[in-house]
Design a protein around this nucleic acid. Structure first.
Lengths: 148, 148
DNA sequence: CAAAAGTAGTTGCTTGCGCAATTACATGGC
DNA sequence: GCCATGTAATTGCGCAAGCAACTACTTTTG
C-alpha cells in the first residue's frame, strides 16, 4: 500500500505548491493593480472577463463563476464597479430576472491601462517563482501548457 | 512582435487556469473540512504545517509565510486555534520577542481525523477537474510534478 | 554603553466575503 | 390558466482579512 500512500502525498505536495504559487501571484498582482489602477485582482478579473466576451456583456452568474465568487459577493462587486462608472447594468428583455453587465468606455479605458501592468507583474512573479526550488517545476509546467 | 504578444497571452491564460483550479479546490476543501472537522482551509494548513515540522513548533512568521497570510491574520488565526485547544503558544527563551506554536494532543488528533477527508477531497477535486477541458492539462502537469 | 534602527507579535479599524433569507421572475404539471 | 417548483439577483448579518499604529525586545553603531 506504499504506492497508494505515495500518490496521496504527491497530490498533497502538488497542491501545496499550487497554493503557494497562487498566493505569491495574487499578492503581487494585488499590490501592482491597486497602486496602478485602484483595482483589486477580482475587479480586474471582471473587467478582463467582460472585455474578452463577445458583445461585452455577461450575466451575474457567469461573472460569479469567472471570479470564483458567491452571488452576493458578485452583486456587491458589480455595485462597486458600477458606482465608479466602469461598467453598466443592463436588464435583458427575454428573461427579466437576468441582468447583463457591460463595460463602459471608462471601464475599457481603465482596463487598457491596467492590462500591461497586470501582464508585466505576472511575468515578474513567474520569473521570481522560477528561482524558488519548490515552485520552479510548476512554473515550467505552466509555461508548457499552451505551448503544445 | 506577434511572438512576444503570444507569450503574454499564454501566460495570462495559464494564470487564469491556475486561478480557476485553485478556486475549485479551495471551495471543495472548505466545504469538506468545515463539515468534517469545523476547520477552514487555512486552519487545516496551519495544523498540517505544524505536524510536518520537526519538533512540531514554528514561529508566527513562518506560519504567516506558510499560509500566505499577514501577521495580524496569523495572530488571530493562532488565537482561534489556541482557544479551541488545538495548539499552544510557547515563548522561546533565546529571543523573547519570538513565539513558538506547537500542536497539542487534541490538535494532532483532529488533524489525524481531518487529513483523510482533506486528501480524499483533493483527489476528487482533481478528478473532477480532469474532465473540464480548460483545466485538464494543468491537472495532468500537476500530477507529473513529483513523479519525475 | 547609550541611542538609533530593526524585527516579532498584537490591537483598532475598515473592507470584502459567504451563508441564509428574501424578492422577482420563469417554467412544468394538472 | 393556476399553483408548485425552480432560478436570478439582492439584502442582513457575522466573520476573517489587510493596513497602520503600537509595544516589546534585539542588534547595530558611534
Amino acid at each position: 500500500m506504499g504506492i497508494k500512500d505515495d500518490a496521496v502525498e504527491v497530490r498533497a505536495q502538488g497542491w501545496r505548491t499550487l497554493a503557494a504559487l497562487h498566493g505569491n501571484i495574487v499578492a503581487a498582482l494585488e499590490k501592482a493593480l491597486q497602486s496602478a489602477a485602484d483595482l483589486s485582482v477580482v475587479e480586474y478579473t471582471v473587467l478582463d472577463a467582460l472585455s474578452r466576451q463577445d458583445g461585452w456583456h455577461m450575466r451575474m452568474q457567469q461573472l460569479a463563476r469567472a471570479t470564483a465568487l458567491s452571488s452576493s459577493a458578485t452583486t456587491r462587486l458589480v455595485n462597486r464597479l458600477e458606482d465608479r462608472g466602469l461598467l453598466a447594468r443592463i436588464l435583458c428583455a427575454d428573461d427579466r430576472r437576468g441582468i447583463y453587465t457591460e463595460l463602459t468606455e471608462a471601464g475599457q479605458k481603465l482596463l487598457l491601462a491596467a492590462r500591461p501592468v497586470h501582464d508585466e507583474t505576472l511575468a515578474e512573479s513567474l520569473t521570481a517563482a522560477e528561482s524558488v526550488p519548490e515552485l520552479e517545476p510548476l512554473v515550467k509546467a505552466l509555461g508548457a501548457l499552451q505551448g503544445a
